[in-house]
Amino acid sequence: MKRNVLPGLRLSLGVTLFYVGLIVVLPIAALVFKAASLGPADYWQIVSSARAVASYRVTVLSALGATIFNLFFGLALAWVLTRYRFRGWRIVDAMVDLPFALPTAVAGIALTALFANNGWFGSVLADLGIKVAYTPLGIMIAMCFTSLPFIVRTVQPVLEDLDPALEEAAQSLGGSDWEIFRKVILPLLTPALLAGVSLSFARSLGEFGAIIFIAGNQPMSTEITALLVFIRLEEYDYQAAAAIASVLLLTAFVMLAVTNTLQARALRYTVRS
């Protein structure tokens, strides 16, 4: 290996390690340490309490629902934005990033205003007998909003890079549009879709700001795990907060590993020499 002549390794690596250590590693280590100091029996009792388990259930199920909706809607949106040109498509393309740019608390009160029983959408839905605000459906809608860009932005570049020759070949062999989509296009999109799905799901599991306004926050039914951590803190029950937060942290690490694997696979199929 040739000798590196560039200066600044010690300074830049030093700054990086110091910053990552102080800002990222130290707090997470402190949380893990605090949760570990509980002892297995106490820890298990807290994380498996009925209220905690109910919060996992509503969080995971809502995140699952939101991710499935975003899988279809996100794919359709990405498709429309790459395949079709219509008036205003640039604005639509830019607006996809709004959930990233809009602060979660702002999104939360806006969605609540829309879906409350006297809101623009809520009043119409209430006439149909559907309650959104203060139910798990509301949690799902907040999650849909915040995690939509993940799927669109992961699938979009792959769709743009899709070689038209593949479709032409399939067409010349007599395939119908649906057959070509299912047997040629979808398999090529699958790695990107899976990566987007895991990002979207991970984001929904940890979401807080957008949800607490619309959720109703009833223990055992509409209380998400992140909120339960917050409530335990307000009750000065730091051990319980640490234990339940450690569950969220562990889930985040698992999702990070899953996403990393899926994204590496997605890239392997899209990188061209």
């Binding site: 990086t16 402190a30 949380l31 340490f33 599991l205 940890g206 807080f208 730091y238 969220l248 985040a252």
Partner: peptide, 21 residues
């Protein structure tokens, strides 16, 4: 991976973690 951890961690977990420091 360490640099990207904050992307996957819930903001509430981040806040709690700072509390324990």
């Amino acid at each position: 991976v360490l640099i990207e951890i904050p992307f996957s961690v819930s903001p509430i977990v981040a806040g709690v973690a700072y509390l324990f420091v």
